[in-house]
Amino acid sequence: MLTAERRQFILEILRRDKKVLSSELSAVLKVSEDTIRRDLRELAESGLLQRVHGGALMAAPVTASYTERQMQAPQEKEAIARAAAQLIRPGQVAILDGGTTTLQVARQLPLDLAATIVTNSPPIAIALAEHPYIEVMMLGGQLYKKALVNIGAATIEALGMIRADLCLLGVCSLHPEIGISVQNLDEAYIKRAMIARSAEVVGLATAAKLDTAATYVVGSIQALTYLVTAPTVTTAQSIAYQNLGVTLIRHDR
């Protein structure tokens, strides 16, 4: 089998099983584990998978610009946002993480809702600026232009002064074994701080982000109280997360 054929086979197995093990691939393909590790390394460098100890997982979706991400799965994100917005109760303090799905949550909040929203996202703060009863607390810091969120020590310090009832977390990658992960280290620190300062945590994830992994781990699946996702998620995927104690909420179509 040619190298290109072998690597295509690896990707097909990965798409089917959501993970591959170097030892199993070595036995099936009748090549050394060194050869398999080299294949996985090359595929990872091309952004086609995420290497982990002993094998590989599906890679996180390629991070596009904020504007481009707003055009990805807009109906799915809007429906997820409708379900998530219902979790914010009157009088609560809720942290809204940055992201295009959490921006949709801000737009879905009822006009009669009186609550406090804490966010590091300028677009979310702007979206809520004219809401009649929501108090907006904007977290400062350095603007990470690709994601349009504030990051850094100042952001983390401000979060340290807050005790929130709820955190709605934008998810880059979610995997039962790896947990919550992202592609930017500073964002990982911010998300960790948001989780630590919240009584309950809601993960918002489109179907494409489930069972994938990125470079920087935010925390385990058990950090989530709820996972709001798509109805297209399979029963097998649902069970894997529910068995870890997460309450799954599928949005309506």
Rank of each mutant, 00 (worst) to 15 (best):
V62F: 14
V62E: 15
A64D: 14
A64F: 12
Y66L: 05
Y66H: 06
Y66P: 01
T67G: 15
T67C: 15
R69I: 10
R69Y: 11
M71H: 14
A73I: 11
A73L: 12
A73D: 13
A73Q: 13
P74K: 11
P74S: 10
Q75A: 12
E76G: 13
K77T: 06
E78C: 12
E78F: 11
A79S: 15
I80D: 01
A85R: 01
A85W: 00
Q86D: 08
I88C: 10
P90I: 06
P90A: 02
G91F: 03
Q92N: 08
V93N: 05
A94V: 07
I95V: 13
L96K: 02
D97P: 07
D97C: 08
D97V: 11
D97L: 09
G98T: 07
G98R: 04
G99L: 03
G99T: 04
G99H: 03
T100L: 01
T101R: 11
T102H: 07
L103D: 10
Q104V: 04
Q104T: 05
Q104L: 04
V105D: 05
A106S: 03
A106Y: 01
A106M: 05
A106T: 05
L109S: 06
P110R: 01
P110W: 00
P110L: 00
L111W: 14
L111C: 12
L111V: 14
D112F: 09
A115D: 06
A115K: 07
T116Y: 00
I117T: 07
I117N: 06
V118S: 03
V118W: 03
T119L: 00
T119Q: 00
N120L: 05
S121H: 04
P122H: 08
P122C: 07
I124C: 02
I124R: 07
A125S: 12
I126W: 10
A127H: 05
L128R: 10
A129H: 10
A129K: 10
E130N: 09
E130V: 06
H131A: 08
P132Y: 00
Y133L: 14
Y133P: 06
Y133G: 11
E135Q: 09
E135A: 05
E135V: 04
V136D: 01
V136R: 03
V136C: 02
V136H: 02
M138S: 12
M138K: 13
L139N: 03
Q142H: 13
L143I: 06
K145G: 08
K145W: 11
K146W: 09
K146Q: 13
A147I: 00
L148P: 03
L148M: 11
V149K: 03
N150T: 14
G152D: 07
A154Y: 12
A154M: 14
T155S: 09
T155Q: 04
T155D: 03
T155E: 04
E157A: 02
E157C: 00
E157M: 02
E157Q: 02
A158Y: 10
A158L: 12
G160M: 09
G160H: 09
M161F: 04
M161G: 01
I162F: 01
A164D: 03
D165K: 13
D165M: 12
D165G: 08
D165Q: 10
D165W: 13
C167N: 02
L169Y: 02
G170E: 08
V171S: 08
